[in-house]
């Protein structure tokens, strides 16, 4: 297995973990909160909202803007 494959496998594993956590959070007895609840908690204050939305805005700038 090459480093290229290992690196991509790492990203794939992280993406799968997001899906797995989100699916697990839907179970009635789950201790894992849905991603939306976690995001809502982080964004409960103005500073939290600005921090998270600045990161989102930066993603758009990073991939597309000058």
């Amino acid at each position: 297995m090459t480093w290229h494959e290992i690196t991509i496998a790492g990203y794939a594993l992280l993406a799968l973990a997001v899906v797995a956590f989100q699916v697990a959070s839907r179970r009635p007895d789950s201790r894992i909160p849905p991603l939306s609840s976690t995001a809502g908690r982080v964004m409960a204050t103005r500073s939290g909202r600005v921090a998270v939305l600045a990161a989102w805005a930066w993603l758009g700038l990073h991939f597309f803007a000058l």
């Binding site: 909160p33 939306s36 609840s37 995001a39 809502g40 908690r41 964004m43 409960a44 909202r49 998270v52 939305l53 989102w56 993603l59 758009g60 991939f63």
Partner: peptide, 18 residues
């Protein structure tokens, strides 16, 4: 990217207690 932005803004509708 637009969907992610909307998801984040929508997440502010429900705030779990601290």
């Amino acid at each position: 990217w637009l969907a992610l932005g909307w998801f984040l803004l929508d997440a502010t509708k429900v705030i779990p207690r601290s």
